[in-house]
Amino acid sequence: MTIHREGYKILLVALFLVLAINHAVFRWLSWPDWADYTVLGVTVFFFLVILQFFRNPIFTVSKNPKQILAPVDGKVVVIENTHEGEYFKDERIQVSIFMSPVNVHVNRTPVGGVVSYFKYHAGKYLVAWHPKSSTENERTTTVVKMENGVEVLFRQIAGALAKRICWYIKEGDAIEQGAEFGFIKFGSRVDIFLPVGTKIVAELNQVTKGGRTVIAEWS
């Protein structure tokens, strides 16, 4: 387990605030001891909450071109046929995974191949489970073309608390299945759009692990 690079600056600021607040409380305020230690406990808890949000587990990805892996840790909240209007402009199977603030927020590619399309969209900050968040919230859309010619679209979506989407890919990049491609800060959602007929093995409300849980399989 390591700390993700997106958390370095935020954690330094948080640590400075914790130290500054407790220095002021213990040195300048004439409070009872129990009040001093209550402030210490609350501020340390605050720092640990932020620290756990940026944890980055280390593991080996079991690559399989016949499987689609979960892009993030979270819970499956949508499995349905829907019209994908940005790139494919036809019917696709949508699988959506919601991440709470306590989940690991590293984003991983569900399949390997070449990035054939990428676009960032500015937008709103509706709650991540809102039906319109997929088309109205701040988001990125990535399409990866696999060696067999099949294209898979996945979309980072900001939520009510997520005010920054980070990505590390661009069109033309070759990426491996399970590789890190982005990060969304403080709660969010990722949608995957698969060809109709793809065998979905995930279930609604299933807990997923990014880069490890199998979402779907090619027949």
Results as ranks from 00 to 15, higher is better:
A160M: 14
K209T: 07
E147I: 02
L161G: 14
A158T: 03
V207L: 15
G210C: 02
F183T: 06
R189F: 01
E203G: 08
A174W: 09
V196N: 12
K199G: 03
N205K: 11
K170N: 14
E176K: 11
A202P: 06
F181C: 10
G211K: 08
I200M: 08
I165C: 09
A160D: 05
P195Q: 09
I192F: 02
A174I: 08
G182L: 06
L161Q: 07
A202Q: 02
Q156N: 06
R164H: 09
E176L: 12
I192R: 02
A160Q: 13
I175Q: 04
A179D: 12
D191M: 07
D173L: 00
G149P: 00
T198V: 03
N205Q: 14
I192S: 08
G182K: 13
L194Q: 01
L194S: 04
W167G: 09
K170T: 15
A162E: 00
V207F: 15
K209H: 12
G197A: 02
I175A: 03
L194R: 01
A202N: 05
D173W: 00
A174D: 10
K209R: 15
N148Y: 00
R189E: 06
I192N: 12
E180C: 06
F181Y: 14
E171N: 10
Q206A: 03
F183H: 07
V152T: 03
E203W: 02
F183N: 10
C166E: 14
G159V: 15
E180R: 12
L153N: 02
F193P: 09
C166V: 15
A179S: 15
E147M: 02
A174C: 10
V152Y: 00
A158E: 02
G211M: 02
L194T: 05
L161S: 11
K163W: 10
K185A: 12
T198N: 09
E203T: 12
I165G: 11
L204D: 11
G159M: 12
A174T: 14
F186L: 15
E171C: 01
L153S: 05
V150Y: 02
E203N: 12
F193W: 06
L204E: 12
G197H: 09
I169V: 15
I200T: 09
G178W: 11
E171I: 01
Q206H: 04
I157D: 07
F181K: 13
I200A: 06
E180I: 05
R189H: 03
K170H: 14
F181T: 04
V190D: 08
P195R: 09
L194W: 01
I165D: 14
K163T: 09
G197E: 13
K163N: 11
F193Q: 05
V150M: 05
V150K: 12
A160I: 15
T208I: 06
T208F: 07
E171D: 10
I192T: 13
F186D: 10
A162R: 07
V207M: 14
E171T: 14
I184D: 07
F154N: 01
E171H: 04
G159A: 12
N148A: 00
K185W: 08
N148S: 00
R189I: 01
I200K: 05
G178N: 11
G178C: 09
T208Q: 13
G211Y: 03
D191S: 08
A158P: 01
E151S: 10
E171P: 07
A179C: 10
I169R: 12
N205L: 07
Q206E: 15
D191L: 08
K185M: 04
I165A: 11
C166I: 10
Q177T: 04
V152W: 01
G178L: 11
F183Q: 05
N148G: 00
